[in-house]
Design a protein around this nucleic acid. Structure first.
Length: 550
DNA sequence: GTAGGGTTAG
């Protein structure tokens, strides 16, 4: 299969200098000539003005998501603001802060935040949302707590931002308490019925696995608040997370009734929902009805097809995307590369990698991680490692991919070496690190390394994370240690049907049939619930293996 | 007067 790129000039045009901003300012500030005059004075650098409104306007223009201000100009905004002596003005400083936070410049935003003599509710809210957007939800949550402790009463803006942080935070996800406290705060401030806060609460509960999401939307209907597109998107996403297909279909009906089929984002989330529940044909039909397909529409479609590992159809879709004038982005390349890895199609994978490079994504961490995934799944481990070593940007996920690559090929020593170096260099492992490294020990009976990883899980507070505990149980089963597995489940503080099932099947996988039967008897004496189909099938398999059934 | 919620991606 050959893929050909049709676009010739992929590099973004770099705008000249201040003139670019000037043009943007003229276009967007026709009612505010002060911005124009300030910018004009910047360009000539002769008459510095002290008009904070004009400076604010200039920053606002630069911070606007539609503006791609040149880097030289961006670098000058902060010193210019300080030089003009307006750093004491909270309103202007807020604008500068929003400028940094929207661009994901965390260190500048944090520096400025520290410098500020006075902070208001907007300062704090902009910081919280900036942290979430830049992938630092834990920091956002901590800032929110400091804000409340500092005596600020959160409004709908702050609550919507912090709920988003709550949804994205791995630490917060382990505990529902924080989400409930936020709902309490919203209720106290009479903001739980606010459309923004309501949508965010709905998603938060859905991500915790509470079907109360549906009720929330019904309540919004009853209280006379008209749901907007965001509400629908959150509700469809919530029904997709909680696997409430009926509710999702009702929402689909409401989307048609309320003529929201013209909204691309609403349609995108519907396509995604139908793919996730396995109704591929409906998903494809809805995709066909999207009039203005954006990159997310195509990505949703490609990733839905990739989930079935339908490499040919997904690749066709990838080609169609460019043909219809929609440029692939880092998500598109990540999905395609991972699909090539899953299908062990190194030839197609390398072509996609070449295209990603041409499109300017060679330094993108999401794409780089997917390249490591593709190379290692295709068995090109040494290539993957060479690529990993030469990367200029890395994150924890990059290391996880390389460790997972070693794990997949049972290179336990290499996986362990990388895991140790990750910890030694001060990086914090995350919930994906442990399953990746433990995968290498499915066959290796190395108790000493097991203990080290287990200790790290406990130290970093991942004992209750279900993927981590499941992979630990599997590793304990590889050692044949029943007591070890039971301890892991106990440490996870969630001894449910699922964890019993995982434990029994892990022992079955290693042919430890007597252990499966021992665990089943223990389950019957300790647990009041009836065994589910998965447990029964596991036990029956163990019986069959032990020739207890003839 | 500024800030905010969503969809694709591990």
């Amino acid at each position: 299969m050959m893929l050909r790129s049709k676009s010739s000039s992929m590099k973004p045009a770099v705008a000249g200098s201040w003139t670019f901003l000037l043009q943007a300012a003229i276009a967007s500030t026709t009612k505010r000539p002060s911005a124009f005059s300030t910018l004009a004075s910047y360009t000539t650098a002769t008459i510095p003005t002290r008009d904070p409104f004009a400076i604010m306007n200039a920053i606002s223009v630069a911070a606007s998501p539609s503006t791609t201000a040149p880097p030289s100009m961006r670098r000058q905004l902060h010193p210019s603001t300080i030089k003009l002596g307006v750093c004491a003005d909270t309103f202007t400083m807020d604008h500068l802060l929003i400028f940094y936070s929207r661009r994901g410049n965390l260190s500048c935003a944090l520096d400025l935040f520290d410098e500020m003599l006075q902070r208001n509710l907007v300062t704090w809210t902009a910081m919280v949302s900036g942290m979430v957007r830049s992938g630092a939800p834990e920091l956002g949550l901590r800032l929110f707590v400091s804000m409340v402790r500092g005596g600020f009463c959160p409004n709908e803006f702050a609550l919507a931002s912090v709920l988003s942080a709550c949804c994205q935070s791995v630490e917060a996800n382990a505990k529902l308490g924080l989400g409930l406290s936020l709902h309490g705060l919203a209720f106290k401030a009479a903001l739980d019925g606010n459309p923004y806060v309501g949508s965010s609460l709905m998603l938060m509960y859905a991500k915790y696995g509470y079907v109360a999401a549906a009720e929330q939307l019904v309540q919004m209907h009853h209280s006379g608040i008209t749901p907007d597109v965001f509400t629908y998107i959150s509700a469809v996403k919530a029904s997709s997370i909680t696997r409430e297909l009926k509710f999702g279909q009702q929402l689909h009906g409401l989307v048609i009734q309320n003529m929201l089929q013209s909204d691309t984002s609403v349609m995108n989330v519907l396509v995604d929902m139908y793919f996730r529940v396995g109704l591929k044909d409906i998903a494809v039909a809805i995709f066909g009805k999207i009039r203005r397909k954006d990159t997310i529409s195509w990505n949703t479609m490609i990733s839905g097809l990739a989930r079935d590992e339908d490499e040919k159809v997904a690749a066709d879709c990838f080609v169609d995307m460019s043909r219809y004038g929609c440029k692939p982005n880092q998500v598109t390349f990540s999905v395609m590369l991972r699909l090539c890895g899953a299908k062990e199609n190194a030839s197609l994978g390398l072509q996609i990698f070449g295209l990603a490079y041409l499109h300017g994504y060679s330094d993108n961490v999401l794409v780089a991680n997917a390249v490591i995934n593709m190379l290692s799944r295709c068995g090109l481990l040494s290539c993957a490692y060479a690529f990993f070593c030469n990367l200029s940007v890395r994150n924890v996920a990059t290391c996880n991919e390389m460790i997972a690559g070693y794990g997949l090929h049972s290179c336990s020593e290499d996986a362990m070496r990388l895991f140790r170096s990750l910890v030694c260099f001060g990086a914090k492992p995350d919930e994906f690190t442990y399953p990746a490294v433990l995968c290498a020990f499915q066959q290796a009976h190395d108790a000493r390394n097991h203990e080290q990883i287990h200790a790290s899980v406990l130290k970093h507070g991942f004992a209750s994370c279900k993927f981590v505990s499941a992979s630990l149980v599997k590793a304990k089963a590889a050692l044949g240690s029943i007591q070890g597995s039971l301890k892991v489940t106990k440490d996870a503080e969630k001894v449910d049907l699922v964890s019993w099932g995982i434990t029994m099947s892990a022992f079955l996988k290693h042919g430890l049939n007597d252990e499966v039967l021992f665990l089943f008897n223990l389950f019957r004496s300790d647990f009041t619930e009836k065994p589910d189909e998965f447990i029964l099938a596991t036990v029956l398999n163990a019986c069959a293996n032990s020739t207890l059934i003839r």
